[in-house]
Simulated scan of single mutants.
Amino acid sequence: MIALQLLQMDILKEKMKQDDRYTLATGELGAHRLSILNKVHKPYTEFLLQRVGLEAGMVVADIGCGTGNVSNWLAQQVGDNGSVFGVDISAEQLEQARKNAKVEGLSNVTFSLGSAYATGLPLESFDLVYCRFLLMHLTQPTDALNQMQSLLKPGGILVCEEADFSCTFCDPPSRAYERCFELFMTISDIRGQHFRLGATLYRFFMDVGLANSEVCLFQPVVLHQDNKRLIDLSLFEAVDALIEAGITTPQEIDQTITQIRALAADEKTVFGIPRVTQVWARK
């Protein structure tokens, strides 16, 4: 039985090799989850970008910009004399990003369709290039890092934030919470993606020639129900991918989501969400 299961896993891995599909929902369907994610991570991201030297007048690229939460904040920081270019492979994400920029009255941010491997942006044109939770979804993260590095002007700064899904906790401990992240790491392994990438992000920078990199770690801890919903919403959006891969069942997913929602509603329960590695380097 074990040999058969291993064979089936090998077949799945071969079938889904080089699979850069985004596991979660995009566009309007994923906007609420992304707004919670941004609320949780916003303080750490903003501190990082200010720490590395973000200032008015800069030309900035946000790769894998999603619904534009960070892009629009960057546009506010660089001001009228600066500009921000957000790139994403999803037209649905970009539609939301443009709507959000319009609501905020921003005229110095532009969103365009492109991949992390071929952004469509002009080379050596940016003072700062940024991505958050992008490389972990890719099968060739170093290729994307090389592409982002090529966008920088000499002396420009590359800044990346990536998560490690193997570093989470729930207190009191919960098997449902553990199972959620087991499922995410399994689908990542099957697809050849990197949901543990935070632990190796510094090494990836070194591999592409950014030897003067700096690194920092942090792990958000969420207490209140509105933020803790990030976990069950993420699992709910991944249902189709997880079931397609054959690593869970609708019954297990329903049970796991129900249990995590109950934990989220319990103010005595603490969620330690995936640890994040921040790495930055000057070209």
Rank of each mutant, 00 (worst) to 15 (best):
R175T: 14
S150Q: 12
D266N: 13
L151G: 02
C216D: 10
V270D: 09
E95M: 11
Q76R: 11
I273N: 01
M206W: 15
Y130A: 02
G57N: 10
G272L: 04
S188G: 14
E182W: 11
R179N: 14
C167R: 05
L242C: 11
A238K: 04
L233K: 07
N69F: 12
L197W: 00
N212R: 10
D189L: 14
V78E: 04
P154T: 13
K15D: 06
V215I: 09
K17G: 00
G209W: 05
E244P: 04
C180Q: 01
V222R: 03
S125G: 07
I63T: 05
S125D: 12
H194M: 01
V84M: 08
H41S: 03
L235K: 08
R229V: 06
F204L: 13
D10N: 08
M136T: 07
Q77L: 04
I257R: 10
R275F: 00
N72G: 04
L263N: 05
E267M: 03
Y117H: 15
T110P: 02
F47N: 06
I187W: 00
C167E: 05
D88L: 12
I253L: 12
Y177G: 07
V52E: 02
P154M: 14
R261T: 05
L34F: 08
E124H: 15
C160A: 15
L48I: 08
L197M: 04
S35H: 11
P173Q: 13
V40F: 01
A262S: 10
H194E: 01
T256Y: 09
F169G: 11
S166K: 05
L12F: 08
L242M: 10
R229K: 14
I11Y: 10
D10M: 08
R282F: 02
E92T: 07
N146Q: 14
T200E: 13
T110A: 10
S71E: 03
I190Q: 03
G68H: 06
E92I: 06
V215P: 03
D207A: 15
D226K: 07
A118C: 10
V239C: 12
K99M: 14
T142P: 01
